[in-house]
Design a protein around this nucleic acid. Structure first.
Lengths: 167, 167
DNA sequence: CGATATAGTTAGCTTTGCTAAATATTATCG
DNA sequence: CGATAATATTTAGCAAAGCTAACTATATCG
């Protein structure tokens, strides 16, 4: 019945893609006021809620390349949101941690994007809010499937920037 | 009542944002194989399904600035996905239309992103698929709310291309 | 007609992503 | 032990996609 795809594609794919694109495009504007851009904020969030970690671990968590994370970390550091030190056990490794200011920023919900998104969600009808809430676990699993396939697709073996090895 | 927010933010805001970010980040990789990037594909999609339109209209539909759409249109044209002609009624205006090749591209579902997304959706449990499908109208309205607020926020009046001269 | 508004373009900057290659450090093996 | 390999990060350089400011060409209006 409904899962019969018209031309090989699930009917939800296109709208979901489109909505996600627009959502982020609209939210990007909120960053400007905050002075912390999307990529930085996202990395910072991982750092605040996940605790200090190496650049490689952060790059993996954020699904970006090592050089990209190097740059993001430099910017976060320069702006006072993160601090780096050499890892005890391994001098190659950097231990990046969020500063108290960053923790305050994130914990206080001063994130412009999320405030804007939150306000918009609140403006919806209760049924709409409910539908979105109900879809979140499914979206989470969807992202997991994609992530799994992406890493499967390019050589099962990692080698990117080190694999699962926290200290 | 039910939306008792912890710190002023709706609990759905953060996961929704995070999932959207990851989703697009993962899908972006599919573009490369196709040779049509995200922004171009999205604009092209509007063109294919919405019919020929001016650059201004397309910029508004895509929520990007006029120069950005100028560039996208040039690239689409150069790559053979779009064609331009001067509008009959108004020589300032450009009428951009999708080429047959673009229509084939989109209609055949040869879009790498959407194929990947579609495949991932299909790998989900039926309940998850259902939850995502059920949330789409709500997401649509969410984006509308955001869009509305964005345009309210900067200069009530439309005038999406011509930027108001400041004295 | 001339002033002003509109549609699009050009120029130039920023952010964020990438790959390839360099550097520093640690691990391993003969 | 020392040469070699692997790992973590950085540097350098490129591209996409976004923006604003300023310019050109065309319409419109008083």
């Amino acid at each position: 019945m409904p899962s019969r795809r018209a031309r090989g594609q699930d009917p939800a794919a296109e709208p979901l893609h489109r909505h996600a694109l627009r959502l982020l495009r609209l939210l990007r504007r909120e960053d400007e006021a905050l002075g912390v851009s999307a990529a930085r904020l996202s990395a910072l969030s991982v750092l605040v809620f996940g605790g200090p970690m190496s650049l490689g671990a952060l790059a993996e968590a954020e699904q970006v390349s090592a050089p990209t994370m190097t740059r993001l970390a430099q910017e976060l550091e320069r702006e006072g949101w993160a601090r780096r030190e050499v890892a005890d056990a391994d001098a190659r490794r950097v231990r990046l941690s969020a500063t108290p200011a960053a923790m305050r920023l994130l914990r206080r919900g001063r994130d412009g994007r999320l405030d804007a998104l939150s306000a918009a969600i609140d403006a919806l009808a209760p049924d709409d809010r409910k539908a979105i809430g109900a879809a979140l676990p499914a979206l989470d699993r969807l992202v997991q499937v994609l992530q799994q396939r992406a890493s499967d697709a390019r050589g099962d073996l990692p080698s990117r920037t080190g694999r699962r090895r926290l200290d």
